[in-house]
């Protein structure tokens, strides 16, 4: 039995301990904002925050999550999350939208540590998140805009 908190609520799981966190979140907890894109940590669509750090949930066995705090797109809060989501909406970043939960989770984590990121900082945080629609141009702009907005 594995216990952890998911968006602040205590949860437990007693299935196959190798089950990736991604599938626990999606199949068992039925939170579907976290997406499957590759299953091998190459695309970032499954990004969550695990104990405050970005984590690719597709390669995270649930057995390693015991006692941890997991935050998904449905539970992301705070000034960085608000600023990032507002910036995303303001310039219509998403196209198909499938990767955007992961993009936003990475962008929020970036701003939590680096409030005023450079382009290189953005590459450093975001290069693990694929977008096949190639909305990268707007992702970059939205992160800068979110940083500016937080600075007030």
């Amino acid at each position: 039995m594995v216990t952890f908190t998911l968006n602040g609520k205590e949860r437990s799981f007693d299935g196959d301990p190798d089950t990736p966190l991604l599938w626990v979140i999606r199949d068992f907890e039925k939170l579907t904002g976290t997406k499957y894109g590759c299953g091998v940590a190459q695309c970032g669509a499954c990004t969550v925050h695990l104990d405050g750090m970005t984590r690719r949930s597709c390669i995270t066995p649930i057995s390693t999550v015991d006692g941890s705090e997991v935050i998904t797109i449905e539970g992301i809060e705070g000034p960085e999350a608000k600023a990032v989501q507002a910036a995303w909406v303001a310039i219509d970043v998403p196209q198909c939208g499938y990767c955007q939960s992961g993009q936003i989770m990475s962008a929020v984590a970036l701003l939590q540590v680096t409030p005023k990121p450079s382009d290189a900082d953005i590459d450093g945080a975001m290069a693990g998140n694929l977008c096949r629609c190639a909305t990268y141009h707007r992702i970059r702009q939205a992160i800068h805009n979110a940083a500016d907005a937080m600075e007030g």
Partner: peptide
């Protein structure tokens, strides 16, 4: 469709 694609 933007808002729903930014909050999951």
């Amino acid at each position: 469709d933007t808002v729903g694609k930014t909050n999951g």
